[in-house]
Design a protein around this nucleic acid. Structure first.
Length: 602
RNA sequence: GGUCCGGUAGCUCAGCUGGAUAGAGCAACAGAUUUCUAAUCUGUAGGUCAUAGGUUCGAAUCCUAUCCGGAUCACCA
């Protein structure tokens, strides 16, 4: 059991015993135990204020009461001090060495099967459009999704990764139109251009033409709205989309070919990102579905039909609007297919929870979707979650692919690996390493930096990507954390190479008590399981990121102030060695949850 | 206009289920290395936590109003 809950239980029993006469009942929620801030003496702090008032006792009386109770029931309890209403509790050095031993003996420390009850969870990401390559926003999406998947697995969930391709409709029609009207028909084969980029080139070309047309129309005195209606290009795109729906052979052929280019290209990017799915869904296969569900909803009076035979749902009672689910001509809308897809997924994987990793511009859509599913009585509808993340912006403004101010994902990855290479060469620490291994290390560092940069920030915040400042390699960054790990591994290598005498942990602690810096580090390591749990409950990789940084940071300070292998006292040396190895393990496992690799040297 | 989200140091952000003197990193300045890996460490400086009220023993955190920024409110996806 966790020491905090152990203390909490004892305190709770004591308080309830004291409060009996007054008819007071306290629960776990009333008890707040924090890590004692650095400026105060102690390990854990209990806030007494709420109880002082309710019990009508003096702070020091209560503190003494709790303390003596703890002292008699908790062998590892050592001292306490009371500052205002804060009871700072100090645990004995042996507690820390014993805890560390527990951590050491647990190979999968922090990774737990609890909290999930063997449930399964479905995570959908990044669900790109097939008309252009991935950009920086997709990277944020992918990093969030893959990391969340790992975190949920660490919490014992069976995780299914799925992806929905928006492979039809207006967007791909634009790329197709541009290809049809291009003077020179370029293919990935005859140009060497990566397929997804090539499709994107045509998309950009169309956007440029449309922009020019719009400008002309607006210059001639039309409003933007009027211009849109007048636009010849817009009409042709609508027409092309209809042709696709009518399955006109040459349109379908072209569509297949260009989507094929996209998938080929994006597969390369996926591979670099270590991305794979349990199942991929295609909008072209589901866009027409969902009518049965609408029928059913009509029977249950969840939906209603207007005179023009369009079908709606009224959500005004929960602060949402009326929403269309079936057009008057009987065709489906985005919402309808998303409803259908949920039922399909439930057939494919019976899941208890489902997470959609999608940008925050679709918050409204998912609110409506979840509400509809709830009314339709979908099982587990209370466990649908939209992991919403803020837009990635450039300093100049919102990132828009049609304006060409987009940061391409492939370019970004190349660039960050290149930076890693340059920085690494400045350091010149990899002399003994083979060239192939070097390249591998640059990739690990570069990708780590990129992943961490995007994951350490709370997803709800929009973020600005500044190409000039680029990715940090100093401070609160992956390379700093990776470097810390490399140092712990270096210790291991040196100990072996120099045949340093290292005692087993049990042997070492017989003659050694951890000092303040060591117990603090141990205390931080003890938080790891709780952090994983919390990250899972809150769908928040950022919690893990910031925690791992804290571990690395505290270790760096410790490492600077204390000798490890050069320590003469064999017990101290051994203790520190084991501590360092465990720090390395927690960093390794923590970063792994973020899909960040840990080079053995750098 | 309605709804939702954000506003914390010059910059990027933690902290937000209420708890002690609001924390990191970057940038600035001053130090520490013939490294158990200095991609490191230590220190200095930098704050009316957007503003104004309220609740509370206690508010960056909760409530209300206002200001600023963003998203969204299609028979688009």
């Amino acid at each position: 059991m966790n020491i905090k809950t152990e203390i909490g239980d004892i305190v709770l029993q004591y308080l309830n015993h004291q409060g009996k006469e007054k008819g007071l009942v306290f629960t776990e929620k009333d008890i707040l135990i924090n890590i004692t801030p650095n400026d105060f003496v102690g390990d854990y702090t209990l806030v007494l204020f709420p109880f002082i008032k309710k019990l009508g006792v003096k702070p020091d009386e209560l503190a003494e009461g709790i303390a003596s109770e703890l002292k008699s029931r908790l062998p590892s309890y050592h001292h306490h001090n009371l500052v205002k209403g804060f009871l700072n509790m100090e645990l004995s050095p042996t507690f820390w060495s014993n805890s560390l031993q527990d951590i050491l003996s647990n190979g999968s420390y922090g990774i737990q099967g609890t909290g999930s009850n063997g449930q399964s969870i479905l995570i959908e990401y990044p669900s790109p459009n097939t008309n252009k390559p991935l950009h920086l926003g997709h990277l944020r999406n992918i990093f969030l999704g893959s990391s969340l998947a790992n975190i949920m697995e660490a919490n014992g969930y069976k995780v299914y990764r799925t992806c929905l391709y928006n492979d039809r409709g207006t967007n791909i029609s634009k790329s197709m139109w541009a290809y049809q009207h291009a003077a020179k028909k370029v293919t990935p084969e005859n140009s060497g251009r990566k397929g997804d980029h090539l499709v994107g080139d045509y998309y950009v070309r169309f956007s440029d033409l449309l922009k020019a047309e719009m400008k002309q129309l607006i210059d001639s005195g039309l409003t933007e709205e009027q211009a849109k209606k007048q636009s010849k290009l817009e009409k042709e795109i609508a027409e092309l989309t209809v042709q696709w729906e009518l399955k006109i052979p040459e349109v379908v052929e072209l569509w297949k070919m260009m989507n094929g280019w996209f998938y080929e290209g994006v597969a390369v990017t996926y591979q670099r990102l270590g991305l794979s799915f349990d199942k991929e869904y295609y909008e072209s296969e589901v866009y027409n579905r969902g009518r049965e569900t609408v029928e059913e909803g009509l029977k249950k009076n969840i939906f209603y039909q207007k005179e023009d035979s369009s079908v709606w749902i009224d959500l005004t009672d929960v602060g949402l609007d009326q929403k269309l689910v079936l057009r008057s001509n009987g065709t489906t809308v985005y919402m309808t297919q998303d409803i259908a897809l949920v039922y399909q997924k439930q057939k494919d994987f019976s899941f208890q929870r489902s997470v959609y990793v999608v940008g925050n511009e679709q918050e409204y859509h998912f609110k409506v979707l979840f509400e509809i599913l709830k009314r339709l009585g979908l099982q587990g509808s209370e466990h649908l979650y939209h992991l919403s993340y803020g837009m990635v912006e450039l300093p100049t403004g919102k990132m828009k692919s049609r304006e060409g101010t987009v940061v391409d994902a492939d370019d970004m990855i190349d660039e960050v690996i290149q930076i890693a290479k340059e920085k690494s060469n400045e350091q010149a620490k990899l002399a003994e390493v083979s060239d192939a291994e070097k390249e591998n290390i640059y990739t690990q560092i570069g990708m780590g930096a990129l992943r961490y940069f995007l994951l350490k920030v709370d997803p709800v915040k929009k973020m600005v990507y500044n190409p000039v400042e680029s990715i940090d390699f100093n401070g609160n960054t992956a390379p700093f954390i990776q470097y810390t790990y490399a140092r712990t591994q270096s210790l291991m290598r040196n100990a072996e190479a120099q045949k340093t005498e290292i005692l087993g942990f049990e042997e070492a602690i017989k003659n050694y008590s951890p000092n303040l810096s060591e117990s603090k580090l141990t205390r931080t390591l003890l938080e790891f399981p709780a952090i994983i749990l919390e990250a899972g409950e809150n769908y928040s990789p950022a919690l893990v990121a910031n925690y791992v940084y804290q571990v690395a940071s505290e270790f760096s300070t410790f490492y600077h102030d204390h000798k490890v292998l050069k320590e003469e006292d064999v017990s101290a040396r051994s203790f520190r060695f084991h501590l360092s190895q465990k720090v390395g393990k927690v960093i390794h496992d923590g970063l792994k949850l973020l899909c960040i690799e840990t080079p053995e040297r750098m």
